[in-house]
Protein backbone atom coordinates (compact mmCIF):
# COMPACT_ATOMS: atom_id res chain seq x y z
CA UNK A 1 0.00 0.00 0.00
CA UNK A 2 2.15 2.80 -1.39
CA UNK A 3 1.27 6.31 -0.20
CA UNK A 4 2.30 9.89 -0.84
CA UNK A 5 2.95 12.29 2.01
CA UNK A 6 3.87 15.88 1.20
CA UNK A 7 4.94 14.87 -2.35
CA UNK A 8 7.19 12.10 -0.96
CA UNK A 9 6.31 8.59 -2.05
CA UNK A 10 6.53 5.83 0.54
CA UNK A 11 6.09 2.09 -0.07
CA UNK A 12 4.03 1.86 3.13
CA UNK A 13 3.03 4.26 5.91
CA UNK A 14 5.53 3.46 8.72
CA UNK A 15 8.60 5.61 9.47
CA UNK A 16 10.79 6.28 12.52
CA UNK A 17 10.75 9.49 14.55
CA UNK A 18 13.88 11.63 14.25
CA UNK A 19 16.40 10.78 16.97
CA UNK A 20 14.83 7.47 17.91
CA UNK A 21 16.62 5.19 15.44
CA UNK A 22 20.23 4.97 14.26
CA UNK A 23 20.25 3.27 10.86
CA UNK A 24 24.02 2.89 10.80
CA UNK A 25 24.14 1.12 14.16
CA UNK A 26 21.09 -1.00 13.34
CA UNK A 27 22.77 -2.12 10.14
CA UNK A 28 25.92 -3.06 12.06
CA UNK A 29 24.17 -4.78 14.96
CA UNK A 30 21.08 -6.36 13.39
CA UNK A 31 22.08 -6.46 9.73
CA UNK A 32 19.10 -4.24 8.75
CA UNK A 33 19.28 -0.43 8.69
CA UNK A 34 15.52 0.25 8.79
CA UNK A 35 13.64 -2.96 9.47
CA UNK A 36 9.98 -2.73 8.45
CA UNK A 37 10.23 1.05 7.95
CA UNK A 38 9.43 2.70 4.60
CA UNK A 39 12.53 4.90 4.83
CA UNK A 40 14.67 6.56 7.44
CA UNK A 41 14.35 9.91 9.22
CA UNK A 42 17.79 11.06 10.42
CA UNK A 43 18.67 12.47 13.81
CA UNK A 44 18.39 16.28 13.67
CA UNK A 45 21.45 17.71 11.89
CA UNK A 46 23.00 20.82 13.45
CA UNK A 47 25.46 23.17 11.68
CA UNK A 48 28.39 22.31 13.98
CA UNK A 49 29.33 18.99 15.62
CA UNK A 50 27.77 18.61 19.08
CA UNK A 51 28.73 16.28 21.94
CA UNK A 52 25.24 16.47 23.44
CA UNK A 53 24.25 17.07 27.06
CA UNK A 54 26.15 15.74 30.07
CA UNK A 55 24.72 12.62 31.75
CA UNK A 56 22.18 11.79 33.00
CA UNK A 57 20.12 12.14 29.83
CA UNK A 58 17.19 9.79 30.38
CA UNK A 59 14.82 8.84 33.16
CA UNK A 60 11.78 6.60 33.23
CA UNK A 61 8.34 8.05 33.77
CA UNK A 62 5.00 6.26 34.12
CA UNK A 63 4.26 4.87 30.64
CA UNK A 64 6.82 7.20 29.18
CA UNK A 65 10.42 8.26 28.82
CA UNK A 66 11.94 11.58 29.84
CA UNK A 67 14.97 12.71 27.88
CA UNK A 68 17.39 15.60 27.70
CA UNK A 69 19.80 14.46 24.98
CA UNK A 70 21.02 17.79 23.58
CA UNK A 71 21.21 16.98 19.85
CA UNK A 72 24.57 15.15 19.70
CA UNK A 73 25.78 14.69 16.13
CA UNK A 74 28.62 15.05 13.65
CA UNK A 75 27.49 18.46 12.32
CA UNK A 76 26.45 19.42 8.79
CA UNK A 77 29.80 19.03 7.05
CA UNK A 78 30.57 15.51 8.29
CA UNK A 79 26.93 14.49 7.81
CA UNK A 80 27.07 15.47 4.13
CA UNK A 81 30.58 14.16 3.48
CA UNK A 82 30.43 10.85 5.32
CA UNK A 83 27.18 9.86 7.01
CA UNK A 84 24.65 10.63 4.28
CA UNK A 85 26.56 8.75 1.52
CA UNK A 86 26.91 5.81 3.92
CA UNK A 87 23.19 5.91 4.79
CA UNK A 88 22.32 5.88 1.08
CA UNK A 89 24.10 2.54 0.69
CA UNK A 90 22.34 0.83 3.61
CA UNK A 91 18.85 2.36 3.94
CA UNK A 92 15.98 0.77 2.04
CA UNK A 93 13.72 3.61 0.83
CA UNK A 94 13.91 7.41 1.01
CA UNK A 95 16.09 9.27 3.52
CA UNK A 96 14.39 12.21 5.20
CA UNK A 97 16.89 14.64 6.72
CA UNK A 98 15.89 16.39 9.94
CA UNK A 99 17.37 19.89 10.18
CA UNK A 100 17.93 21.99 13.30
CA UNK A 101 19.77 25.18 14.15
CA UNK A 102 19.96 28.28 16.28
CA UNK A 103 19.32 30.98 13.67
CA UNK A 104 17.51 31.28 10.35
CA UNK A 105 20.82 31.12 8.50
CA UNK A 106 21.73 27.82 10.23
CA UNK A 107 18.62 26.17 8.82
CA UNK A 108 18.83 27.77 5.38
CA UNK A 109 22.48 26.76 4.87
CA UNK A 110 21.76 23.12 5.75
CA UNK A 111 18.59 22.97 3.65
CA UNK A 112 20.41 24.48 0.66
CA UNK A 113 23.25 21.96 0.98
CA UNK A 114 20.78 19.06 1.26
CA UNK A 115 18.83 20.33 -1.75
CA UNK A 116 21.75 19.59 -4.04
CA UNK A 117 22.36 16.12 -2.60
CA UNK A 118 20.34 13.41 -4.37
CA UNK A 119 20.69 11.08 -1.34
CA UNK A 120 18.28 13.32 0.58
CA UNK A 121 14.68 12.69 -0.51
CA UNK A 122 12.92 15.12 1.80
CA UNK A 123 13.69 17.67 4.50
CA UNK A 124 12.10 17.89 7.94
CA UNK A 125 12.51 21.13 9.89
CA UNK A 126 12.84 20.48 13.62
CA UNK A 127 11.48 23.83 14.80
CA UNK A 128 11.69 22.96 18.51
CA UNK A 129 15.00 24.83 18.74
CA UNK A 130 15.65 28.33 20.07
CA UNK A 131 16.45 31.20 17.70
CA UNK A 132 19.47 32.65 19.45
CA UNK A 133 19.52 35.67 17.09
CA UNK A 134 15.96 36.83 17.68
CA UNK A 135 15.90 35.65 21.29
CA UNK A 136 12.94 33.35 20.58
CA UNK A 137 13.02 30.39 23.02
CA UNK A 138 11.45 27.99 20.53
CA UNK A 139 10.88 28.80 16.86
CA UNK A 140 7.98 26.35 16.75
CA UNK A 141 6.31 28.19 19.63
CA UNK A 142 5.89 31.35 17.55
CA UNK A 143 3.77 31.55 14.40
CA UNK A 144 5.77 34.43 12.87
CA UNK A 145 9.12 32.68 13.40
CA UNK A 146 7.72 29.41 12.03
CA UNK A 147 6.39 31.05 8.87
CA UNK A 148 9.62 33.00 8.30
CA UNK A 149 11.75 29.88 8.74
CA UNK A 150 9.58 27.68 6.54
CA UNK A 151 9.45 30.36 3.86
CA UNK A 152 13.24 30.84 3.93
CA UNK A 153 13.77 27.07 3.63
CA UNK A 154 11.21 26.89 0.83
CA UNK A 155 13.23 29.44 -1.16
CA UNK A 156 16.28 27.16 -1.26
CA UNK A 157 14.72 23.75 -1.88
CA UNK A 158 12.28 22.16 -4.25
CA UNK A 159 12.37 18.91 -2.26
CA UNK A 160 9.42 17.85 -0.11
CA UNK A 161 9.59 20.07 2.99
CA UNK A 162 8.09 18.89 6.28
CA UNK A 163 7.71 20.91 9.47
CA UNK A 164 7.80 19.00 12.75
CA UNK A 165 5.62 20.64 15.35
CA UNK A 166 5.84 20.77 19.11
CA UNK A 167 2.68 20.28 21.13
CA UNK A 168 4.16 22.38 23.94
CA UNK A 169 2.50 25.48 22.46
CA UNK A 170 -0.62 27.49 23.29
CA UNK A 171 -2.38 26.77 19.97
CA UNK A 172 -0.88 24.24 17.58
CA UNK A 173 -3.39 25.12 14.82
CA UNK A 174 -1.92 28.63 14.53
CA UNK A 175 1.60 27.22 14.14
CA UNK A 176 0.37 24.65 11.59
CA UNK A 177 -1.22 27.43 9.52
CA UNK A 178 2.03 29.42 9.68
CA UNK A 179 3.97 26.40 8.33
CA UNK A 180 1.42 26.03 5.53
CA UNK A 181 1.67 29.74 4.67
CA UNK A 182 5.47 29.40 4.61
CA UNK A 183 5.20 26.70 1.96
CA UNK A 184 5.49 23.40 3.85
CA UNK A 185 4.41 20.22 2.07
CA UNK A 186 3.53 18.28 5.21
CA UNK A 187 3.39 18.49 9.01
CA UNK A 188 4.92 16.05 11.48
CA UNK A 189 3.05 15.84 14.80
CA UNK A 190 4.40 15.69 17.47
CA UNK A 191 7.77 16.23 19.04
CA UNK A 192 8.31 15.42 22.73
CA UNK A 193 6.31 17.40 25.29
CA UNK A 194 8.25 19.73 27.59
CA UNK A 195 8.72 17.87 30.86
CA UNK A 196 11.43 17.18 33.40
CA UNK A 197 12.56 15.12 36.38
CA UNK A 198 13.87 16.77 39.52
CA UNK A 199 16.62 15.80 41.88
CA UNK A 200 14.79 15.57 45.19
CA UNK A 201 17.84 16.70 47.17
CA UNK A 202 18.39 19.94 45.25
CA UNK A 203 15.05 20.67 43.57
CA UNK A 204 16.96 21.21 40.33
CA UNK A 205 16.58 19.27 37.09
CA UNK A 206 17.76 15.67 37.35
CA UNK A 207 19.26 15.93 33.87
CA UNK A 208 22.87 16.95 33.25
CA UNK A 209 21.69 19.40 30.59
CA UNK A 210 18.52 20.52 32.41
CA UNK A 211 15.17 20.75 30.61
CA UNK A 212 13.68 17.59 29.16
CA UNK A 213 10.94 16.13 26.99
CA UNK A 214 8.36 13.40 27.48
CA UNK A 215 7.71 10.68 24.88
CA UNK A 216 6.05 7.30 24.77
CA UNK A 217 2.57 5.91 25.46
CA UNK A 218 1.78 8.76 27.88
CA UNK A 219 1.70 11.30 25.02
CA UNK A 220 -0.46 9.42 22.49
CA UNK A 221 -3.61 11.45 23.36
CA UNK A 222 -1.59 14.65 22.90
CA UNK A 223 -0.49 13.45 19.45
CA UNK A 224 -4.10 12.62 18.53
CA UNK A 225 -5.22 16.10 19.52
CA UNK A 226 -2.41 17.70 17.52
CA UNK A 227 -3.21 15.66 14.39
CA UNK A 228 -6.92 16.54 14.57
CA UNK A 229 -6.12 20.23 15.12
CA UNK A 230 -3.70 20.30 12.16
CA UNK A 231 -6.14 18.45 9.90
CA UNK A 232 -8.85 20.98 10.71
CA UNK A 233 -6.56 24.00 10.35
CA UNK A 234 -4.70 23.11 7.13
CA UNK A 235 -4.90 21.05 3.95
CA UNK A 236 -1.40 19.62 4.48
CA UNK A 237 -0.55 15.92 4.71
CA UNK A 238 0.34 14.82 8.23
CA UNK A 239 2.83 12.29 9.61
CA UNK A 240 1.53 11.34 13.05
CA UNK A 241 3.71 10.20 15.94
CA UNK A 242 3.71 10.08 19.69
CA UNK A 243 3.38 6.95 21.79
CA UNK A 244 2.64 4.57 18.91
CA UNK A 245 3.10 0.96 20.04
CA UNK A 246 0.58 -1.11 18.11
CA UNK A 247 -1.48 -1.43 14.93
CA UNK A 248 -4.43 0.06 16.80
CA UNK A 249 -2.36 3.14 17.67
CA UNK A 250 -1.55 3.48 13.95
CA UNK A 251 -5.25 3.13 13.08
CA UNK A 252 -6.16 5.81 15.65
CA UNK A 253 -3.65 8.33 14.29
CA UNK A 254 -4.77 7.63 10.72
CA UNK A 255 -8.41 8.01 11.72
CA UNK A 256 -7.46 11.37 13.24
CA UNK A 257 -5.99 12.50 9.91
CA UNK A 258 -2.41 11.21 9.57
CA UNK A 259 -1.45 9.62 6.24
CA UNK A 260 1.80 8.15 7.57
CA UNK A 261 2.82 7.22 11.11
CA UNK A 262 6.22 7.19 12.83
CA UNK A 263 7.47 4.99 15.65
CA UNK A 264 9.72 6.44 18.32
CA UNK A 265 10.25 5.40 21.91
CA UNK A 266 8.50 2.05 21.35
CA UNK A 267 11.37 1.01 19.05
CA UNK A 268 13.71 1.03 22.07
CA UNK A 269 11.92 -1.96 23.59
CA UNK A 270 11.35 -3.70 20.31
CA UNK A 271 13.53 -2.85 17.29
CA UNK A 272 11.40 -5.23 15.20
CA UNK A 273 8.17 -3.38 16.07
CA UNK A 274 7.52 -2.07 12.54
CA UNK A 275 7.44 -5.66 11.24
CA UNK A 276 4.96 -6.66 13.96
CA UNK A 277 2.70 -3.65 13.31
CA UNK A 278 2.77 -4.14 9.51
CA UNK A 279 1.76 -7.77 9.93
CA UNK A 280 -1.07 -6.76 12.30
CA UNK A 281 -2.24 -4.02 9.92
CA UNK A 282 -2.33 -6.51 7.05
CA UNK A 283 -4.33 -9.13 8.96
Amino acid sequence: MSITVGRLELAQPLLNGSGTWDAEQAHRIFGDANPGLAGFVTKTITPEPRAGNPAPRIAPSRQGLLNSIGLPGPGREAFLATLLPRLRTIVDGPIICSVGGFSLADYVDTVAALDSDPACAAIELNVSCPNVESGCASIGGDAGETERLTHAARQVTAKPLFVKLSASVADIATIAKAAEAGGADALVCVNTIKATAVDRRTGKSWFGGGGGGLSGAAIKPVALHAVVACREATTLDIIGLGGVESADDVRDLMAAGACAVALGTALFRNPALAHTISADLAS
Binding site: Q25, A26, N53, P56, R57, L65, P271
Partner: peptide, 27 residues
Protein backbone atom coordinates in the same frame (compact mmCIF):
# COMPACT_ATOMS: atom_id res chain seq x y z
CA UNK B 1 27.33 1.14 33.56
CA UNK B 2 24.91 3.81 32.36
CA UNK B 3 21.15 4.11 32.29
CA UNK B 4 19.99 2.80 28.90
CA UNK B 5 16.70 2.97 27.03
CA UNK B 6 17.56 0.96 23.90
CA UNK B 7 20.97 -0.75 24.11
CA UNK B 8 21.66 -0.48 20.37
CA UNK B 9 22.65 3.12 19.73
CA UNK B 10 19.22 4.56 18.89
CA UNK B 11 18.38 6.82 21.84
CA UNK B 12 21.69 8.52 22.77
CA UNK B 13 20.59 8.17 26.39
CA UNK B 14 23.56 6.20 27.73
CA UNK B 15 26.13 8.99 27.64
CA UNK B 16 29.48 8.22 29.29
CA UNK B 17 32.62 10.36 29.25
CA UNK B 18 35.12 8.73 26.89
CA UNK B 19 38.05 10.22 25.00
CA UNK B 20 37.25 13.55 26.68
CA UNK B 21 33.74 13.79 25.21
CA UNK B 22 30.33 12.11 25.56
CA UNK B 23 29.92 8.73 23.86
CA UNK B 24 27.25 6.05 23.85
CA UNK B 25 28.01 3.37 26.46
CA UNK B 26 25.97 0.73 24.61
CA UNK B 27 27.95 0.85 21.35
Amino acid sequence: EAPMACGFGACNGCAVQLDGTWKRCCI
